[in-house]
Amino acid sequence: NQASVVANQLIPINTALTLVMMRAEVVTPMGIPAVDIPRLVSMQVNRAVPLGTTLMPDMVKGYA
């Protein structure tokens, strides 16, 4: 099973992602693959992402 990107903290809307905000976890359903974490750094979320939420492609501006 491939790990997905999960929020390590509450990420407010329009926040630029940093490594500290994300962790890799095997979850269902799968979200953004953990291998993409370096690519996500400095991209912004388009909604508030609660702690423990799996990041989906439509939550990150410019990802999809």
Rank of each mutant, 00 (worst) to 15 (best):
A64T: 14
T54S: 09
N1H: 09
R39D: 05
Q2L: 07
M43E: 06
T28W: 10
V41W: 04
S4C: 03
I32A: 03
N14H: 09
A34T: 06
N46S: 13
M43K: 09
T15I: 06
P50F: 10
P38F: 11
R23G: 05
A7N: 02
R23Y: 06
Q9N: 15
L51D: 12
Q2G: 12
V45Q: 00
G31C: 02
V20E: 14
A16T: 07
L19I: 07
L40P: 01
L17A: 00
Q9M: 13
M56C: 03
P38G: 10
S42V: 03
M22F: 06
L55N: 00
D36P: 01
D58R: 05
Q44G: 04
T28F: 12
T18C: 03
A34K: 09
K61V: 15
A7W: 02
R23S: 09
I13C: 03
S42Y: 11
V6R: 04
P12Y: 07
I37L: 09
V5C: 04
T53E: 08
A34E: 04
N46A: 14
I13Y: 11
N46F: 09
V27Q: 05
P12D: 13
N8V: 09
V41Q: 13
N46M: 10
V6N: 02
N1W: 08
M43H: 09
M56F: 15
A48G: 15
A3F: 14
N46G: 14
I13P: 12
L55R: 00
R23P: 01
T54M: 04
P33Y: 04
L40Y: 02
S4H: 01
M21H: 09
A16I: 10
P50M: 09
Q9Y: 11
A16L: 13
V35L: 10
P29L: 06
Q44N: 15
N1K: 15
Y63I: 07
L10Q: 06
A34C: 03
K61P: 15
D36I: 06
L51N: 10
S42W: 11
V20H: 07
L10I: 14
A16P: 13
S4V: 03
P57K: 10
S4G: 07
V41L: 11
V26Y: 11
V60G: 01
L51E: 14
V6D: 00
A64I: 13
A64K: 03
Q2T: 14
P33M: 12
A16E: 10
N46T: 08
L17G: 00
D36K: 05
T15C: 03
T53N: 12
V5N: 01
N8L: 05
V49Y: 02
A64G: 15
V6Q: 05
P50S: 11
L40T: 01
L19N: 10
A48D: 13
T15S: 10
M43S: 05
V60C: 02
V49F: 02
T28V: 10
N14E: 06
M22C: 03
N1V: 12
M22T: 02
M30G: 06
R39I: 09
G62E: 15
V27H: 04
S42Q: 06
I37T: 14
N8S: 15
Q2N: 10
G62I: 04
T15A: 08
V49I: 15
Q2C: 04
V26P: 08
L40R: 00
P38D: 15
R47D: 07
P29E: 08
P29S: 06
T15N: 07
G62A: 08
T54Y: 02
P50H: 07
V60N: 01
L17P: 02
P29Y: 05
T54V: 11
S4W: 02
V26I: 12
R23W: 04
V35E: 13
V6S: 03
I37P: 00
Y63E: 05
R47I: 14
M56E: 07
V27N: 04
G62Y: 07
L19S: 10
I37H: 02
P12S: 09
M43C: 03
G52P: 00
T54L: 06
G62T: 11
I13Q: 14
L17V: 04
I32G: 00
P38R: 05
P29R: 05
L55H: 01
V41G: 03
M43F: 13
V41N: 06
P57F: 07
T53R: 14
A64H: 09
N14Q: 10
M21G: 04
L51Y: 14
L40N: 00
M21V: 04
V6Y: 03
Q2F: 10
V5K: 01
R23N: 07
T54A: 07
V49G: 01
Q44F: 12
P33E: 06
A3W: 06
R39L: 14
I13D: 10
P57R: 07
D36E: 10
K61I: 11
L17D: 00
V26H: 15
L51S: 15
T15L: 05
Q2A: 13
L40M: 14
V49K: 00
P12C: 04
V45W: 01
A34M: 15
A48H: 14
I11E: 01
Q44T: 13
Q2I: 11
L40C: 03
T53D: 10
A34R: 03
V41R: 12
M56V: 07
L19Y: 11
V27M: 13
M30N: 14
N8C: 03
S42A: 14
V26C: 03
I37N: 01
P33V: 05
Q44A: 07
L10T: 07
P38W: 06
T53C: 04
P29Q: 11
V35H: 11
V20Y: 10
V60T: 02
A3S: 10
P57A: 15
N8G: 09
R47E: 09
G62Q: 10
G62P: 09
Q44P: 14
L19P: 15
V27F: 02
I13F: 13
L10G: 11
D36N: 15
N46C: 03
V45I: 08
T54P: 10
A48P: 11
Q9D: 13
I11F: 02
L10F: 15
I32Y: 02
R23A: 10
Y63W: 05
M30D: 08
K61Y: 15
P57D: 15
P33R: 11
A64S: 12
G52M: 06
R23T: 09
G62H: 11
P29A: 09
G52Y: 15
L19C: 03
A64Q: 15
R39S: 12
I11L: 06
A24C: 04
V20T: 06
K61G: 13
G31S: 02
A16V: 10
A3Y: 12
V49C: 04
N46E: 14
A16R: 08
G52E: 08
A64D: 13
V60P: 01
V20Q: 09
L17F: 03
K61N: 14
L40F: 02
T28L: 12
L19Q: 08
G62K: 12
D36A: 13
A24M: 14
S42F: 09
I37F: 05
V6F: 02
T54K: 05
R47W: 07
R47V: 07
L51P: 08
V49Q: 02
I11G: 00
M30Y: 13
V27T: 09
T28S: 15
I32F: 03
Q2V: 13
A64C: 03
P12G: 06
I11H: 01
P12N: 14
T18L: 12
G31Y: 02
L19F: 07
M43L: 10
V5G: 02
P57T: 05
G52V: 02
T53H: 12
V20C: 03
I32R: 00
G31T: 01
D58Y: 06
L55T: 01
P38S: 12
R47G: 08
P50N: 12
L19M: 07
V20G: 12
K61Q: 11
V35D: 15
P12W: 04
V49E: 02
L40V: 06
E25S: 09
D58V: 12
S42L: 11
A24Q: 11
R23C: 03
S4F: 03
M21L: 05
A48L: 09
V6W: 02
T15R: 06
M56Y: 14
G31I: 02
L55G: 00
V45R: 00
N14V: 03
Q44C: 04
V26M: 15
A34I: 07
V45F: 01
L10C: 04
S4Y: 03
T18K: 04
L19K: 06
L19G: 08
K61H: 15
D36L: 07
T18P: 00
A16K: 07
T15D: 04
A7G: 03
P38V: 13
L51M: 13
L51C: 03
S42H: 09
A48K: 14
P29W: 04
E25M: 14
P29G: 05
L17R: 00
G31M: 02
L51R: 15
V45P: 03
P50Y: 05
I11T: 01
A24V: 12
I32Q: 00
I11A: 01
A34G: 10
A16W: 13
D58T: 10
Q44Y: 15
M30T: 09
I32V: 13
P50G: 13
G31R: 02
P50A: 13
P12E: 09
M43T: 06
V26F: 08
N14P: 02
R39V: 11
G62S: 12
